[in-house]
Simulated scan of single mutants.
Amino acid sequence: MTYKEEFIKFMVDSGVLTFGEFTLKSGRKAPYFINCGNYKTGAQLSRLGGFYADCIKENGIEAETLFGPAYKGIPLAVAAVTSLADKYGIDCCYCFDRKEAKDHGEGGMFVGKKLEDGEKVVIIDDVMTSGKALRESLPKLKSAADVNVTAMVITVDRMEKSLDGELSAVEQAYKDFGVKVYSIVNINDIIKAIEDGIVPGTEYLESMKEYRKMYGVG
């Protein structure tokens, strides 16, 4: 299996990717659901970090520091930066933000690498629904230093129109901020994995394709 196929199977085995009928926050009725909160063991987090590292390596993403937005992005960035070193010998730094600036000790908004002008930073997050994490992270990062945000890496691109436009969250992020968002897999990869028998879910194929026709982009 390719690393993308392995990742889709990993999501299903971990209970992160499930099929059925789900009402999303947007109000849309979707035939699949992704709940990254179901990653909860050390082994799962270690494997997840490896898939982030594979995506960064395969796409030739330039990174000196991986940034994990608080709170969900923190363990993801730590797992990814560790796997980059272990799997590929790429020794990056990492940092994450606090929800509130610390006013004692070393102080400041960030923990980990002290950001510098021109530093190549990659943002690590789970999924992108509205682009909120990127929208909030960029001014925080820029307030610390004039960093170069080279990319954002997420687990799954749903390739879905936003509620108020024809672009997906990933496309909108590039249009608004010039930041390219890479995903380990996208919804087309998931559909193909079902078709190829990598994961179960053939009974949901038609509804997934219909959902794509109705809300999909790309």
Rank of each mutant, 00 (worst) to 15 (best):
I187K: 15
K175P: 14
A173W: 04
D97W: 11
I123E: 11
R158C: 02
M152T: 03
D91E: 14
K40P: 00
K87S: 06
K57T: 01
S162H: 10
A77S: 14
G15F: 11
V122F: 05
Y215F: 15
S143R: 15
V149C: 05
S14K: 10
F10K: 04
E136T: 08
L48N: 07
D164S: 12
A53K: 08
Y71N: 01
S162C: 07
C95N: 13
T41Q: 13
T129R: 11
Y174C: 01
N35P: 07
A169N: 06
Y71F: 11
G15Q: 09
I61V: 13
K113S: 08
A151S: 15
K120D: 06
K99R: 11
L167S: 06
T23I: 12
I198G: 02
K72C: 04
A77Y: 10
C95L: 00
L205P: 11
D146N: 15
G178H: 07
K114S: 09
K29I: 08
C93A: 14
K175Q: 10
S130H: 06
G107F: 08
G165H: 08
A145K: 10
L76Q: 08
A77V: 06
L134R: 05
I154Y: 09
S207P: 10
Q172M: 09
S14A: 14
T155H: 04
V127K: 14
K161R: 15
G108E: 03
E136G: 00
S162G: 15
P75Y: 08
G27Q: 12
M11C: 12
G218P: 03
K40F: 13
K140R: 13
A53E: 07
V217R: 13
I74F: 14
T41W: 13
P31F: 01
K9Q: 11
D13G: 02
T82R: 12
I124E: 03
C36W: 01
E116Q: 15
L76R: 05
G37S: 03
N59D: 09
A70S: 14
K161N: 03
M109F: 09
K40T: 11
L66K: 09
D86E: 14
I184C: 02
R98W: 09
G197C: 09
R47N: 12
I74D: 11
E106H: 12
C93M: 14
S183Y: 10
A63P: 00
I56Y: 11
E5Y: 15
F10M: 01
S168P: 05
S130I: 01
I191R: 14
Y174M: 02
A173V: 03
A145T: 03
D91A: 12
R28F: 04
L17W: 04
I34T: 05
P200R: 04
M128R: 04
K132D: 07
R98H: 10
G89C: 03
K209A: 04
M214T: 15
E210P: 02
R158A: 02
L167Q: 10
L76A: 08
E64T: 06
D164H: 13
D125P: 07
A79Y: 10
